[in-house]
């Protein structure tokens, strides 16, 4: 049995089905990302797991015990919301102590020490007497995490913890959160709509769309063998083409560009060059398929090849990287 098991959860708001028959298992110590576009029901699922919302049907097992109707306070979750929800009228320290005050078995000195330990863990000791509005976005984020883990929960639930931050800070915090999670070994469920975030941080990714789960797998599998067109499109870019009856997909960076034409090679015309730094994305037109292909090549190579509009390219698609879809 898994650490946390979710069975057939369904949730409707009025006419709208927000979650439809959701099933998943989460193992101890892993970091799972729930990834999906805005409005697909991620937050709702997280809140149902936390017991802050009730499902219309379905069950939740925590540690193999049916916990569907366990109140939120008994589930032992730490949760960090999209908005962080730091209490603006309390300092960083007070925010953390506010929750710890519920631990009646601790003395006030112990609480204080625990809070300081937490602040150390997220590297915020020197900011302990500041109010949330005096902190940067990243610091607020870390305060919210410290507050959530101060009560030593068995699970950490993160709702888009990084979405309010700018790109640089986001990249830095990704690594920090991941390191922290490994260090204290806490089972974590993180909701995000940022594919890069999910790919870099997660042990496993659960891709959701329109109230249903599309695929559950590790980042490699998700990227290399996306189970559906939606997943393929949502995570990275995928070129689709037909091979006989079957629909197939190939990632732009997996396409090989060769100098000399051989039989079976595909002819493509360059339409647009999109410089992206280290590599350049070539928008090309395939006359035979009458479709568009994206091809990623190292920028250096593009320069050496002196590519221009309407230059003819010869493409090879390595069989092992092509993904097959049932139509």
């Amino acid at each position: 049995m898994s650490f946390l098991e979710i069975k057939n959860i369904t949730k409707r708001f009025g006419q709208q089905t927000v979650l439809s028959n959701i099933n998943m298992n989460i193992e101890q110590g892993e970091l799972v990302c729930i990834l999906g576009p805005s409005g697909c029901g991620k937050t709702t699922l997280l809140r149902i797991i936390a017991g802050l919302e009730t499902a219309d049907s379905g069950q939740i097992f925590i540690d193999s015990r049916d916990s569907t109707f366990l109140p939120s306070s008994k589930r032992n979750f730490g949760i960090v919301f999209q908005s962080y929800a730091l209490f603006p009228n309390m300092t960083v320290m007070e925010n953390i102590l506010f929750g710890l005050k519920q631990k009646k078995e601790m003395t006030s000195a112990e609480r204080k020490k625990k809070a300081l330990d937490m602040l150390n863990l997220v590297d915020l000791c020197e900011h302990q007497n500041k109010y949330p509005r005096q902190l940067s976005g990243g610091q607020q984020q870390r305060t919210a995490i410290a507050r959530a883990i101060a009560l030593s929960p068995s699970y950490l639930l993160l709702d888009e913890p990084l979405s309010a931050l700018d790109a640089k800070v986001r990249a830095k915090l990704r690594t920090e959160i991941r390191a922290l999670q490994r260090k204290i070994g806490i089972t974590t469920i993180m909701v995000t709509h940022d594919q890069e975030e999910a790919l870099t941080m997660a042990d496993r990714i659960i891709v959701m769309n329109n109230a249903v789960i599309e695929q559950i797998a590790n980042p490699h599998t998700i990227y290399n063998y996306p189970a559906s067109r939606f997943v393929a499109d949502f995570i990275g870019t995928m070129n689709f083409y037909n091979e006989g009856e079957a629909m197939r997909g190939i990632r732009p960076e997996k396409i090989k560009v060769v100098e000399h034409w051989e039989p079976h090679d595909i002819k493509a015309l360059v339409k647009e060059l999109e410089f992206k730094g280290a590599f350049t994305r070539i928008h090309s037109h395939i006359p035979k398929e009458n479709s568009e292909f994206f091809i990623d090549l190292p920028s250096e190579r593009v320069e050496n090849m002196k590519l221009q509009r309407d230059t003819m390219l010869f493409l090879q698609i390595p069989e092992e990287h092509a993904v097959r879809y049932s139509v």
Binding site: R47, A50, L52, S72, S73, F77, G78, I79, F81, Q82, S83, A85, F87, F98, G99, K101, Q102, R147, A148, L151
Partner: peptide, 14 residues
């Protein structure tokens, strides 16, 4: 006031 204040508090058993 953020609705999430109440939820955070609830999850912390306050």
């Amino acid at each position: 006031l953020d609705r999430e204040f109440e939820m955070v508090a609830e999850s912390m058993n306050i």
